[in-house]
Design a protein around this nucleic acid. Structure first.
Lengths: 121, 121
DNA sequence: CAGTATCCGCGCGGATACTG
DNA sequence: CAGTATCCGCGCGGATACTG
């Protein structure tokens, strides 16, 4: 038996209304840097400098702002240790891990099919 | 047995390298309007005007440009009928449907948890 | 109806310098 | 080390008018 996409979509709720919370959160996590930062944190805790290096091309400003947004959304945890020099670690929250369980299959599929989607010129 | 997110992430490939095809496609489908247009097409074929109305807040320019990008990516099919007045229909391709099978669980989860993620102020 | 053409503002996001 | 502050360009994306 085949379940149609339309049936599944029913349960997605009203994403098309402007300003609805779902749209706001989608904008955060589906943003260019949002995805990459979340992805980087998927294999565990990372320090600021590690994220800066791992997420290639991100600027300090964007890393800071992305992390603050994801933290406010409750998806990322920030832990700062009172040491000199300072050490700050970022990790997914439980909510963040739930999210990534759904996001990873999507990213995997894209990674596997990117060559098919955009023909190699 | 619990499979760690890190293990799953392995198979996602190198998403962190700048300019890699995966990043490009992710940027298309994870963009604000990309997601919403793909979502609108998930319950079947739609005409231009229907999409304009269903995806609330999208401008003509952005709808046109989003549709052209997704069409070039091979995710959306454009069929124009030689009638007066003209009729043009948009639908997901097989590739697009494969993608949405992975995207819908993510969107559903966000829709279900948006209230939790951003506390109602 | 299904777009294109043109104009234009603003804010995203980069670069650089600086700090607790 | 982990950021913040400041400046600034450009292109995303909206608004409006027009067309096959």
């Amino acid at each position: 038996m085949v379940v149609s996409l339309a049936q599944i979509r029913q349960t997605a709720g009203e994403v098309f209304t402007e300003g609805c919370p779902t749209r706001v959160v989608l904008d955060h996590i589906m943003s260019k840097w949002g995805v990459l930062v979340l992805l980087a944190l998927t294999d565990g805790t990372h320090r600021w400098g590690e994220l800066r290096r791992e997420v290639e091309g991100i600027s300090e400003k964007m890393l800071a702002s992305t992390l603050r947004t994801l933290e406010a959304d409750g998806l990322v945890d920030r832990t700062s240790y009172p040491e000199v020099p300072p050490r700050v670690e970022y990790a997914l929250t439980d909510l963040g891990r739930e999210l990534m369980e759904r996001m990873l299959p999507l990213v995997q599929w894209v990674a596997a099919n990117a060559g098919r989607v955009i023909p190699v010129s």
